[in-house]
Write a protein that binds this DNA or RNA. Sequence first.
DNA 1: TATGAATGAGTTTTCATTCAT
DNA 2: AATGAATGAAAACTCATTCAT
Lengths: 198, 198, 198, 198
Amino acid sequence: MNEKRERTKQQILAAAIDVFHENGFQRTRISDIVAKAGVAQGTFYLHFQSKEQIFHHICSEFKVLFLSLLDDAADLFTGASIEAIREKLFVFIRELITLFTANYKMARLLFVEGNSNGGQFNGVYENIYAEFIERIGKHLLNGKNRGYLAFEDAETAATFLIGLFDSSLFYFMRVKNHFNIDKLSRRMTDFMLNGLSR
Amino acid sequence: MNEKRERTKQQILAAAIDVFHENGFQRTRISDIVAKAGVAQGTFYLHFQSKEQIFHHICSEFKVLFLSLLDDAADLFTGASIEAIREKLFVFIRELITLFTANYKMARLLFVEGNSNGGQFNGVYENIYAEFIERIGKHLLNGKNRGYLAFEDAETAATFLIGLFDSSLFYFMRVKNHFNIDKLSRRMTDFMLNGLSR
Amino acid sequence: MNEKRERTKQQILAAAIDVFHENGFQRTRISDIVAKAGVAQGTFYLHFQSKEQIFHHICSEFKVLFLSLLDDAADLFTGASIEAIREKLFVFIRELITLFTANYKMARLLFVEGNSNGGQFNGVYENIYAEFIERIGKHLLNGKNRGYLAFEDAETAATFLIGLFDSSLFYFMRVKNHFNIDKLSRRMTDFMLNGLSR
Amino acid sequence: MNEKRERTKQQILAAAIDVFHENGFQRTRISDIVAKAGVAQGTFYLHFQSKEQIFHHICSEFKVLFLSLLDDAADLFTGASIEAIREKLFVFIRELITLFTANYKMARLLFVEGNSNGGQFNGVYENIYAEFIERIGKHLLNGKNRGYLAFEDAETAATFLIGLFDSSLFYFMRVKNHFNIDKLSRRMTDFMLNGLSR
DNA sequence: TATGAATGAGTTTTCATTCAT
DNA sequence: AATGAATGAAAACTCATTCAT
């Protein structure tokens, strides 16, 4: 019984991600979600309180995945040599890209849809973006202190890296059906490390 | 007479930019716009055909400003020396940032709001973004051919530059009340050129 | 087994009386009733056919108690002396008030909730009210024929007595936490008999 | 223009009184009101905020009429003789009955519908009922002090009078198509004054 | 040209009732 | 007999757009 309930909830979630991605938050109707999920209108409200709430739920789900990846990157820009650092950064970026591509729709909901819409979901977005920048900024300082990196201001540098990462990644995911993750990760890594060298 | 009409239209446009920026496209009501503009509900439709149309109008207005700047940058990455290129790039970026900050709300409507919302305005956005990438990509090839720049794929490199530019610029405009345009332009220029060096 | 079933039904009934009284018929949800009764949603429909039906059931339950009291009052206003009549009336009124206070919520559902709500339950209410007036009217005629009472029209007089009784009793039950039943019965009796004297 | 707006509002109000009276508050739909008023659904919301609000509005309208009648009765039970008092009371009751019959539907909404519905509108009802009782109670004390009336407790006596008045009046208005206002007023007056004599 | 009252289609949400377990 | 998940019809309310003045 409980298992079936959970299955229904997952159906609704999956359908919601799809139609939110397709039509945007505002333009998707609950009726779109339930139609795609194959359940009745009222069933939606057994599992979620409102359209807003399910959107938050989806964003939070991706946020957890994303932040756990950030946690694993604690010693980014800390290594025995610039080549060791390059390798670590490459692995990290590849993991990030893999996460984003595997959850493209969710990622886009949080990072793009969440960023617009006149403040309605800016809380979630700004919160996670600030976290992203702060952590990368800290790691960058490590690299600078060890003499591997050169930049004037950590926040600015972090913003450059992250901006480059998210904006171009979403571009590729949007316009290319498939792209070589390894190659893109490598190019990003090189561009970033070059950008932060003297 | 005609002058008064024009003034009314400008009032509506200015109000629309404000409330679109504040509440997002979907959540702004025509009644919000006309209230802020100080005109009657019906007056809106004497000047614009629909909510969609005024949004497009605003985006187009910024698009014109933006593309004319791009036109001026025809010989970007073409110069007598790397330092000459650096200076040209710096000037170009500073002009871009100046344009974006002077028209922050319009810029954000086009680049952020236009990017989300499930395809409703993706036409405008994707169109201008593609143009941006294509032109920068061409300029980059010039720079590569002359031996000033090193990268494997022009589209990828252009995407990096533009992603870095727009994503981080919007971040600064959103979270900082004021920031030093010169300094930011300089740092971006350096980061970009370093990123594109061997 | 059958005993347990009956207990469940009583739980639902008790809960229904409470929440109907608290929120009114329309505003109580079946989910409120079952929540208070501590049973599942579906269980309600094993015992009652609908929300209307349980409301009717409750009203009928009180109606039975009420009419049996009326039956006992067959020889009201029939007595050896005005003082004997006064005593009989006093006892009758006291019994009525006792019944109403002991079943305040049910009484209010029938007499107040049943009187409003645009005809939905007016059948039950009007039926019992008409019965009330008719019987009291008949008793009053007895009293008049024997020369104990004076009034022009029995229906009018009965309406006065009953109106006075029900309206003021509900007022006291609503605004006073406790009140002296004996005293109120005595005052009502005196007021009524005085009102019906020359 | 403004006049037409007002006319529309009055149409909606009249329709609302009708359908509230016919179906009760909960069971009337906005669509019923606007259908009867001959306007569109949205027009309702140009004039009233919600179903609750228009109900309050209607009750308040009657409340004003009612309280102004109460104001005029300041010297009730104050007179040169019991017969003078009887005449004053008769006039007052006749005015009240006239007001109630002329505005039967509104009166019933406030005094009956407002009394039930599980507390949703009890505020309005209880407020006006308490006012009624308090004022009549004060007048009664005057009559008692001058030796014209006899009763133990003014609140109880007032409650009797008012209960008799409202409950029986609504009964007559409900079951009789027409009734003689003068005759009913006279009978009520006599019953009340007799009821309050030794 | 400007006004603002009116329109009515469209969407969310609620909740009595059903039914598989 | 009891459960509680699922249903879907019904209703309030919003708001872009129209149109008479």
